[in-house]
Amino acid sequence: MSPNINKSGSKKIIVEGLWSNNPIFKQVLGICSTLAVTNLVLNTIVMCAALVFTLALSSATVSILRKLTPRNIRMMVETLIIAFYVIIVDVILKAYWPEMSSNLGPYVGLIITNCIVMGRCEAYGISQPPIPAFLDGFVNALGYSYILLIIAVFRELMGMGTLLGYPMPYFSGPNWDKWIILAMPPGAFFMLAVVTWIFRSIQFSREEKGK
C-alpha cells in the first residue's frame, strides 16, 4: 500500500474491518473483556465507545512511534501505549459517571489485555503510517462493536423486557415469558455462538456464489 492514503485503500480497510475480516466472527479475538457487559445495552455502548477510542488512538500512536521502537521490546511498548489510553478512559469515567464506572467494574481496565487491541497494533499499526493505522483501528473497533450491540439488544430485550432501561411494549407485558437465561452468563455464550453461526454461514454462501 502506498504511504499516502488513497480512496481505494481506505475503502478496503473499511470493508475488511466491518465484514470480511471482522474481529469477532472471523478472527474470534478479544471477546473476553466485552462479552461480560452485554447484558445491558447501555453498558455495552459505553464499553464499545471506550474500545473504539483506545483502539483507534493506540494504533495511531504505535504507528507514529514505529521507527523509534526497538524490535524486541515492541510488545512492551505497545502494552504501555494501550494502558495509557485505558487509564485516560478509566479516569474520565470515574470522574464524570461514577455509577457507570462501578457497573463496568474491572472490565474497562481489561481492555489492556483485550487481544483485539494488541492484535491490530501488531498486525497493522507497527508497519503502516499513522492515518491508515488510525482508520484500521477505528473500523475494527466498529466491526467489533456492532456485533456486541446485536448481542446486547437481544439479551436485554428478551431477558429483561427492556431496552436501555425502558420497558418495551410487548416484551415487558404478561404475554412474554422472560428468557432469564439470556440475562445470565450462559446466555452470552449462546447468543455469541448463534451470531457467529449466522454471519459465518452468510459469508460462506457468498464465497460460494462468488466462485
Binding site: 455464550f189 449462546f190 455469541l192 459465518r200
Partner: peptide, 21 residues
C-alpha cells in the same frame, strides 16, 4: 459449516456455564 470451530465451542461453553450455575 458455519458453526465449526469457535461457534460450537461457544455453545459448549454456554452449556458448561449452565452446569456451573
Amino acid at each position: 459449516r458455519g458453526l465449526q470451530g469457535p461457534g460450537i465451542t461457544l455453545i459448549i461453553a454456554g452449556m458448561m456455564a449452565l452446569a456451573f450455575i
